[in-house]
Design a protein around this nucleic acid. Structure first.
Lengths: 126, 126, 126, 126
DNA sequence: GTGGTCTAGACCACC
DNA sequence: GTGGTCTAGACCACG
């Protein structure tokens, strides 16, 4: 896995696991790979994965069965979306709008760009 | 000044100075406050402000007259806008649209939120 | 069975078996369930139950007849009570009293809470 | 510092720091020792102290000023007491009462023991 | 100087 | 086998 270096690796692992859960790759109440397995997958130290799992656990996205492993919470998807929605609405959107103002981009051109983006995205999927 | 946790303080100072330049608070070829003065204003270590000034200088937004102080470049506004436009269009907007997609926010509600934001912003200025 | 997180599962099984012996559920010199049976009852790995039985054996609370099963020692109840009394008086009570002091809980409210607890406990038994 | 081994070291550091805050050793809005300093004091790896500080921060007992250090929250004492009261009332007291029941200790003898404990404690302080 | 992240490797309790 | 804790040491961004 390729990590960006503007964000801690363990947070990028958190993001990745969340994506995998949202995509249905790891379903509710299913076991996710062990710390060591996942460390091998993403080619990272086990401690770093442990920290990611720790974070996810404190966010109620995964839970631990002692001696067995980590499992996806039944409400994981909802938790992830809620989590993301919160930071999006509370932090990201304001900064984004400020940028639009200072760059003099009005809502019409924004809508236009968004539609373009959606179309491109659709085509990529097909 | 209140700093956010997700961004280095010196970068937030850079942003703030850019905003002040754009707003006309510091005009082209005028002197901006000394490092120490500005450090007092924003209540921050002088080294941190120094680093912000350094950054601004390397972006051709301010320049230094040794022994006198820092001055706003004549093309500062243009530089800032170009700078912002680049990172906005190349990096931020894509991430932002992805978030919208995954959070199921359509362009109408986005437009709505933007209009709200603009109104709030106007009122704050008055 | 619901296990708490702050104590090894096998110790919680030890506690539970002791409670069952004290309550007369398993009488002296009677056979207790096989490791596998008990593992099924409490929904736990057989190894974990094995470890609990091991512990109980080393405490002279149960004994093993090879090929037949585990049996309650004749002095089991006495052993359990002695055991508990020891750790209670030597370790737990001091910590408990310290907490009360630091949390400013006086003996009157403690008595009150205890009476409440006893009433609740009675009702549960009925 | 002597650590017990029935509890993770970093949690014992958390406890110790809380005690020091309660005792007034570290007052509200004052800086506590740096991670490395504290590691030297308690003779432990810096990572372990870092983890303790992390925990305390997530409990709103200390906060971080970037590049400067950790500081005691203004409401730290209240947070600690609330925290401790919660675990005491929710977890410890029930176990304690169960022990009393099974050991046939009534509330009178408990009160007696508590008074003894308090007297001993007073004498130690004098 | 500060914290923060990461690695490598070890040891342990527990399941 | 699992996670959890700890150490030692490194590197880095930040103030």
């Amino acid at each position: 896995m390729n990590f960006k270096d503007n964000k801690p690796i363990y947070m990028q692992i958190v993001d990745r696991l969340c994506d995998e859960i949202l995509s249905g790759n790891y379903a509710a109440d299913n076991r996710i790979p062990s710390v060591r397995e996942y460390a091998a997958i993403v080619e990272v130290n086990a401690n770093t994965v442990m920290r990611a799992y720790d974070t996810l656990q404190s966010l109620n996205i995964i839970y631990n069965k002692r001696g067995i492993g980590y499992f996806v919470c039944s409400e994981a998807k909802a938790m992830i979306l809620e989590q993301r929605k919160n930071t999006f609405l509370n932090e990201e959107i304001e900064y984004f709008f400020k940028q639009m103002l200072s760059l003099d981009i009005d809502s019409e051109s924004l809508t236009q760009m968004y539609n373009q983006f959606c179309n491109k995205h659709k085509n990529n999927k097909q």
